[in-house]
Design a protein around this nucleic acid. Structure first.
Length: 761
DNA sequence: TACTAAGCTCTTTTT
DNA sequence: GAGCTTAGTA
């Protein structure tokens, strides 16, 4: 093995370099924010390859597809095409790949379906209904969370039911059936030939535990194992990594305890401590120099995180210039907050010659994006919202995908329930309930019941309709091998009547749904015509492809010059010149639900730390005095995190007054803070049946269902938003849209067909 | 069985 | 604000 060409090592500082060339044995790299973590990981793999290690023998696990893709690209730049052969991907996708190969050992078909969380939740609901349980006591989301955390801690359904601690917890909480639900859920997934997200991890663990020969094969294959964002791994993931690396112990994990923000889904910092315990030969490297941010931002972030008790000893520092102070903005309402930040982005773009790309707006919850979208749109600033409802979560997309899924795997219960009567084909609720019942009585899938439907008397007149449906799906199945993904998907979209139904719907939503389906079909076409890949271009490969993709992964226009908006969680690993962290209000950030325990509060603080350290040059924090949430206007208080920042790094507060619209500088120390328990939310809910104002009598001739009467300039009233004035009307007849400026909640666009507007004189 | 309007409930982050 | 359930009607 000759010494490889390693000129890129000169680009690294000493600890980075040490971490790269220490290739053998267990290694842990503790990497502070902006310390060049990705660079080290990338060079480490490139270094291995140049040293002669076959990329096939390197396994690198990440949490997001994006991280994997970026790293692969960067490695390619150093070592060229060979990087393609690395086993690099997310935990979920790599394990899914292994499971497809080994599925039969666990009794699964190799074309098993992957249930997303919507599917899982829907299955839970079905089970609750069958068991006659109240879904207000057993909230589906909560039940799923409990099952998920059991899985991630490697507790099987059987183990759950015989664990006295867990069962007594459940009984005390009034939910004694939890174990039974868990067991039923597992059985139903199995019967449907489906795995949920957690199963991809748990079943891999099961596979490697039960089949020593399989384990041995993969241990021999993976000479080097690397894990990114190690602080986010859960118990199950850690157990798998350990197994895979047990023979050679060439395992390298990279993480930052200060950026652990996924404890809520089972991640545990304990893994970092366990790692030190489990590998006595461990070499630890600390990357502490920050190359990303100004010293103001680095120091302010450190001053935040030092309020946490749970943390490793680490001192992040930087050589960078001091830069601007951190600005705090107080706005009157959430809409004002949006307006103000949009204006500031506009000005900074001009004054500092920045591009849209340089700005990011980060928030705690997806719901907060709305006010900023409106404000940016008004200022003509292009933006893109990341996350939220993804393309693949839209109803019409899930519908077509459900057809594809059912064709590939007819046992897929969730897909079947979704489309058996959509588009409408006269198979009603009663019939469907009967099918589900027959399936659970016979412990088989619904599809098996349908296959034998003629033998079951109970269905009577519904039999012919079900048989027709069965024939349709079977005809699709017969085309699976002979047709490529696009041809078959198009055929299905037409034959199922889905395309026609959507095309006939001429409402605004209907048109956009149709467009989305067309877009999906185009996506499938692209997949089918992709020459760079060698695997078959069939529907089942396509489904495997997209099952673990998120919206961002599918969107190729990620590099557009737009202002980016996203939750802080999805901003991890990214950096921007100017960052706005908005909604800095107590109960929102930190979230209300995190205030009960120190651990959760500390996770919120780490989240704030992650947000702050995304910024290179300028960091702005904003909050609103009052905010609409769930139709309620609530008063808000500034987040405790604002007070935790060392005030030396803060700038004077800028206040946006609601009435005048002008900016008034105000002293930073001015914001008040009362303990959470004493905060009083003010409820200003609009009464659904609010009477029209006495001064503005209702026009008796106005018919709510005739949108054509509405004209620009008219004063109107809406039962929820209150009084307002019509400022713009677009479209014709049924599809007419009106933009109404409401006194209390700003401009809203309404589709007149659904708008409950009264015309005021 | 299918469709609609009204009402109720939630109230975090995601592979 | 959205998603879901319910009640009532066609």
């Amino acid at each position: 093995m000759s010494t490889p060409k390693v000129d890129y090592l000169e680009l690294l500082n000493e600890p980075q370099k040490q971490a790269v060339i220490q290739t053998d044995g267990p290694v842990m790299i503790i990497a502070g924010a902006g310390s060049g973590k990705t660079r080290v990981l990338t060079y480490r793999m490139a270094y291995l390859i140049q040293k002669g290690v076959d990329p096939f023998n390197i396994l690198a696990l990440t949490f997001t597809n994006k991280a994997a893709r970026e790293m692969r690209e960067r490695i390619e730049k150093v070592v060229g095409n060979e990087a393609r052969n690395l086993w690099m991907g997310t935990f979920h996708s790599i394990f899914a790949k292994i499971l497809r190969i080994e599925a039969d050992k666990l009794g699964y078909p190799s074309n098993f379906t992957i249930y997303d969380s919507d599917d899982s939740k829907s299955l839970i609901k079905t089970i609750l209904k069958e068991m006659g349980l109240d879904d207000k006591v057993y909230k589906p989301g909560m039940v799923l969370g409990r099952i998920s955390s059991a899985k991630n801690n490697l507790i099987t359904a059987a183990a759950y039911e015989s664990d006295s601690g867990l069962t007594s917890d459940d009984s005390q909480a009034g939910r004694p059936k939890m174990g039974e639900i868990y067991r039923t859920y597992t059985e139903r997934c199995f019967r449907s030939g489906a795995m949920d997200f957690d199963d991809l991890l748990v079943k891999t663990h099961e596979l490697l535990s039960k089949f020593p020969d399989v384990l041995n094969r993969y241990q021999q294959k993976f000479h080097y194992v690397m894990v990114d964002e190690f602080q986010d791994t859960n118990t199950c993931q850690y157990a798998i990594i350990r197994k895979l690396a047990a023979v050679r112990e060439n395992i390298c994990v990279v993480g930052d305890d200060a950026q652990s923000i996924y404890a809520f889904r089972g991640a545990t910092i304990r893994n970092i401590l366990n790692f030190e315990r489990d590998y006595s030969e461990l070499k630890v490297f600390k990357l502490e120099q920050n190359y990303r941010s100004t010293s103001t931002i680095v120091n302010a972030s450190s001053s935040i995180i030092k309020n946490n008790k749970d943390q490793l000893d680490k001192k992040v520092w930087t050589d960078n210039t001091e830069g601007e102070k951190i600005q705090i903005i107080r706005a009157a309402t959430d809409n004002e907050e949006g307006k103000f930040i949009a204006e500031q982005i506009f000005e900074d773009k001009l004054n500092k010659q920045l591009k849209n790309n340089d700005f990011a707006i980060l928030y705690r919850t997806n719901a907060q994006s709305r006010a900023f979208e409106e404000a940016l749109r008004k200022m003509n600033i292009p933006y893109r919202v990341y996350g939220g409802t993804s393309f693949y979560q839209r109803k019409e997309i899930k519908d077509l995908i459900a057809y594809l899924r059912l064709t590939v795997n007819p046992n897929d219960e969730e897909a079947l329930k979704r489309i058996i009567n959509y588009p409408v084909r006269g198979i009603g609720k009663t019939t469907i309930d009967r099918l589900i019942l027959a399936a659970s009585q016979n412990k088989c899938s619904i599809w098996t019941v349908i296959e034998h439907i003629e033998k079951i008397q109970a269905f009577g007149s519904a039999i012919s309709k079900i048989a027709q449906f069965r024939l349709m799906i079977q005809s699709f199945q017969s085309m699976l091998e002979s047709h490529n993904a696009y041809d078959l998907a198009m055929h299905i979209a037409k034959q199922s009547n889905l395309l026609k139904t959507l095309h006939e719907d001429k409402t605004i939503e209907g048109i956009s749904r149709y467009e989305n389906i067309v877009e999906l079909l185009n996506g499938i076409k692209e997949f089918t015509e992709d020459d760079t890949r060698e695997d078959a271009k069939t529907i089942s490969v396509y489904l495997q492809d997209i099952a673990l993709l998120t919206d961002e992964d599918a969107n190729k226009k990620a590099d557009d010059d737009v202002v980016k908006m996203m939750t802080i969680h999805s901003a991890k690993g990214l950096e921007f010149t100017q960052v706005y962290v908005v909604g800095m209000e107590e109960n929102l950030f930190p979230s209300q639900m995190a205030l009960s325990s120190r651990k959760e509060l500390e996770e919120e603080r780490r989240l704030f730390y992650v947000a702050a350290t995304r910024a290179e040059k300028k960091l702005v924090l904003s909050y609103a005095n009052s905010r609409f949430r769930f139709g309620n206007l609530t008063y808000a208080e500034p987040s405790r995190f604002l007070r935790e920042i060392d005030p030396r790094y803060l700038q004077m507060e800028t206040v946006r007054s609601a009435s005048s619209g002008s900016m008034t500088p105000k002293k930073q120390a001015d914001f008040s803070f009362t303990p959470v328990s004493k905060a009083k939310p003010m409820n200003l809910r609009f009464q659904p049946n609010a009477k029209p104002m006495a001064s503005a009598p209702v026009d008796p001739n106005f018919k709510a269902d005739d949108p054509s009467q509405l004209q620009e300039g008219m004063l109107v009233e809406h039962q929820r938003f209150g009084k307002g004035m019509v400022v713009k009307i677009e479209g014709e007849r049924d599809s007419r849209k009106a933009t109404v400026d409401f006194e209390d909640s700003g401009a809203k666009q309404l589709i007149l067909k659904y708008a409950k507007l009264r015309i005021l004189r």
